[in-house]
Each structure stands twice: as structure tokens, then as C-alpha cells.
Design a protein around this nucleic acid. Structure first.
Lengths: 264, 264
DNA sequence: TCAAAAGTGTTAAGAGTACACCCATGT
DNA sequence: ACATGGGTGTACTCTTAACACTTTTGA
């Protein structure tokens, strides 16, 4: 009983007419997986500048054995899509995501161009629903990784992690573009920061994601004008300079992005 | 062989470890369907103003028998996701889509709240990947509909088509919001128009989608400034007033939106 | 000649950008 | 005191919005 009103039309659809009540076995050599691109901000090992990092998992079986892949797994029957992504994220980082959002469903037959050494002959068709998540900077320190899990700077993946398994190069590239686009019109950057934070930290998050410097004074004005943060009244102490005010993100204002982007 | 590096981690994941090579039958009482929200512009029957219409299909079997649903069908194993959407669209309208784009994957366990009269006891879990399409105004006239297929004004669906099957009310609402948001930053409106068109027609498309009037002169300037249309040199004849210039959409400029929104 | 829609020009308000400058703390 | 980053003010540019006005056709 999938959503199959197709048989209701007069148009020809001979093959599908046989399908509709298919809990039958022969019908589906087709699998559904959920993967997640987990972004976190850490200093770059070379330059020291804050950049995006993400965890990859080394495949220990065919196909693409030995290559790095996005963390993920098959969808359990009794599990929601987000739950599956959240579980994956927890397994890979030990953390609960602050921001978790569906990215795209990848399912073309021709995807995952297999290298020569792997046998894809008997490989079933796989449709992947990909999510992306943002890890809070303060929690990130507490992240744990299992064996065969490693974090890489997002922009160095091509060199350091070689070509990824399946079509995960494409997926990752898409996730990066989406993050960079979305940060310009939605207050998701807050998701990288702890409960309270100075505006300079928020600016550094934006700079890390966009890869360019922002004018501190203009940044302050714009952020305050859009009302996505509110003054806590407190100040950060122990700095080597004037103590900055601490802000928290304003849930009333930031709801907009979610309302537009997420259904239900 | 799905994307399952889960077994590579040290974290516990007992259930999934049994999954990976599952072309086995017991593993998946889970189905994958592709549905499509097909938008077209037609005059509203009451007001006469141009508004969004879309085709729905009446379900002829359980669950949700008798209710209206988005056109769609199960994903064939040898078929790409877009191909499936395109096929659905062709069956329902007899047309080839000018614009076809993935909307969202809906797959929560609790989705499709069944009314009392339907038996959902043995209903399998269904994950739907939903696309949305735009039909060209000139082609729309040539659209054919089968039996059990009917077009409705998008904003009147709640009253005229009652509650939809599955969670299609939510899906439709999301599609509408996405269309209205996207039209403000991407030249998709062109997809409703024929090869050549006067700017006033393009404006009327925007007005229909956004549901509000736009200043003709400012609209002209903005559209011309963004360079998404180019002058054909021709003019429309037979109007009851000054003959307007005809434009065509400029593919070089409109590529931006696709690059950002579509992966690969 | 008039109505109707195409198309141009002008102006005012607001948002984005660059940058000079003051403030408050630890060293 | 001074270096450092926090924080404010200002002038300039660019975009957006409102609307007056001219142009060209059919009736």
C-alpha cells in the first residue's frame, strides 16, 4: 500500500499495476540508508584558523572497502528518518546534535561509480537520505570517536581522504554549499555556539563557514538588527581586554528558518 | 551493501549488524514511493485571477480509499528518482515538466494518520520522496487527465478536496511554501511561460505565486537588471494597446539557482 | 480622441560597506 | 602606559519602493 493512485488513471502503467500491495519479496532488491554530514568547527592544523571539520568512517567491507565514507546505516523499519540520522551521529561522535536537517535524497541508479577493485555486480540499488548536522563548539571537545572513525578539515577531504566511497564526494560538496548558502539567510550559525557567547565568537563562526573576514562593527549591527540574539546582561570575564557582553540566541526570531525549511 | 560503515565503529549497533547484505526478504517491510506536486497556473473559477492549480488523484484502494492524494507510485528498481517523478507527471497530465525538483523525503513512522474507516493494521512503512514540477502555461492547455484525476486551485484544496490521503496535506503545504520562497531568489517563474513572453506575463506569474500585486515599472527594472531574460527583438501583435516587447529566458544567468539547489 | 497597458524618469527611504574613533580590561 | 579586542558613530554607496509621466496601439 504505497501512495499508488497510479492504477486509478487511464494512462498506461502495466508494470506498476502489479506492484501496489507489495510486501512481496521479489518486488524490492532496493535498500534505504540514512547518512549524515556532521559539521564541527575546529582550528585548522596548518593555519590555526577556525574551519569546518567532519567525521568520516572507513568502510570495512565491500563495496568500496577501505575507502572513507559518510557515517550512516540502513533505515530500521521502526525508526524515523531523523532518528536514524541522530543515532548515526551519536555513534560517530557521541554527541546529540543541536541542528539536524534533511539535505537530499540520493537515489539514481547510476550513482556510486565503483572503482575497478570492487565488485558491484550483485550490489543492490541503494537510496540514501542524507542529513546534515551542526555540533556545538563546547560539546565538540567531549566528542569521542571509535576506531575507523576520523575527523578531517572539510576543505582538505579531497587530498587527505582520497575519493570517498559511493557518491559521497558529491554529497559532501552539496552539503557544504547548502551550509554556506543557508548561513547567509538563516541564523543557523548559532548552533555551533554554547548557550551564551560574545558576538565576536559568532562572527568567527560566520567567517569560518564563509571563508572570509567580516567587518566586526557592521556584523554587530546586522546581527542585533535582525534580533536573533538577545543580551543576557552578563559579561565574559578573564579576557585580556575589555570584557565583551554575552548574548544568547533568541528562539522567537530564529524559528523563521525552520518554518520555511522544515515541513510539518 | 548499503552505505553501512556502522559496523566499523566501536559503538553499539547490534540490530543493524544483521542488516547489511539484506536482499533478504524479512529485512524490509518498507516501501519507497515517489510522489509529485504538479503546479500550473490557471484563472480562478470565482475571481478569475491567475492562481496555482494542481492535479490530485482519487485513491481506489485501501488505505485512504476514496480520498484525494498526490500523484505518485512505487519506485521501480531500475528507475532513477527523477525518472519516476517524470513518469508520474506524464501519466497524470500527459506533459513533460519544464521544471522538476526534489522537495523532501517524508518517512516518519507516524506519518499518514489514518481515519477510522481505513485499516492500517497491516500497512507497511512507506518512505515517500516527493518532487515538485512546474507546467508551462502554453502546454497546460494540451494537458489530458484520466479518470479519477482532477485539478484544484491550490489554496482551495482544504475545502474542495477535503483532507488528503496520507500526510499529503503537510506535503502540499510545504511545497507551496517552498515555491513561494524560491520564486523570490531564483528565476523559476520562467518555467511557467512559453519560449517567448512579454514582461507583463512574467509579472502576472510572480503575482499569482506570491498572491500580491507588484509594481510594473520596478518589476521590469529588477528583472532586466538580473539578466535572466533577454530581448528577442520581436513584439507581440494584436493587443488592444501598445505592443509589448517579447523576451526569452536567458539560460546562462538562470543556471545559478540550479547549481545551488541541485547536487551533482 | 480616449482607454489601457507599455515603458521611462525621479525621488526618498533603507540596507550594506568602509573606516575613524572611543572604551575597558590585563599585563 | 599600552596593546588588544569590544563597541559606537558617520559618511558614502547601492538597492528598493512609490509614483509621476510619456509612448503606442485598438477601439
Amino acid at each position: 500500500m504505497p501512495e499508488v493512485p497510479s492504477a486509478a488513471t487511464t494512462s498506461p502503467r502495466p508494470a506498476s499495476a502489479a506492484h501496489p500491495d507489495a510486501a512481496t519479496c521479489a518486488a524490492a532488491p532496493l535498500e534505504l540508508a540514512v547518512s549524515t554530514v556532521v559539521f564541527s568547527l575546529r582550528p585548522h592544523p596548518d593555519t590555526g584558523e577556525l574551519t569546518l571539520w567532519l567525521p568520516l568512517v572507513r568502510r570495512i567491507r565491500a563495496p568500496f572497502q577501505g575507502l572513507w565514507a559518510l557515517p550512516g546505516g540502513p533505515l530500521e523499519t521502526d525508526q524515523d528518518l531523523v532518528s536514524s540520522a541522530r543515532a548515526t551521529l551519536h555513534q560517530t561522535t557521541g554527541l546529540a546534535p543541536r541542528h539536524l536537517e534533511q539535505l537530499y535524497a540520493f537515489g539514481d541508479v547510476g550513482r556510486s561509480p565503483a572503482p575497478a577493485d570492487t565488485d558491484t555486480t550483485a550490489a543492490p540499488r541503494v537510496v540514501s537520505i542524507v542529513y546534515w548536522a551542526l555540533v556545538r563548539q563546547d560539546e565538540d571537545a567531549a566528542a569521542v570517536v571509535g576506531e575507523n572513525v576520523e575527523w578531517f578539515p572539510a576543505d582538505d577531504i579531497a587530498e587527505e581522504a582520497g575519493p570517498l566511497a559511493f557518491d559521497h564526494d558529491v554529497v559532501l560538496d552539496y552539503a557544504l554549499r547548502r551550509l554556506r548558502a543557508k548561513v547567509t539567510y538563516s541564523p543557523i550559525a548559532h548552533a555551533f555556539l554554547p548557550e551564551q557567547f560574545p558576538l565576536a565568537d559568532l562572527r568567527r563562526v560566520y567567517e569560518a563557514i564563509l571563508g572570509r573576514a567580516l567587518d566586526p562593527s557592521n556584523f554587530r549591527r546586522q546581527i542585533l538588527a535582525q534580533g536573533t540574539v538577545e543580551d543576557t546582561g552578563e559579561r565574559m570575564t578573564g579576557t585580556a581586554h575589555r570584557p565583551p557582553k554575552l548574548y544568547r540566541s533568541n528562539p522567537h526570531r530564529s524559528r523563521y528558518a525552520l518554518t520555511i525549511e522544515e515541513p510539518s
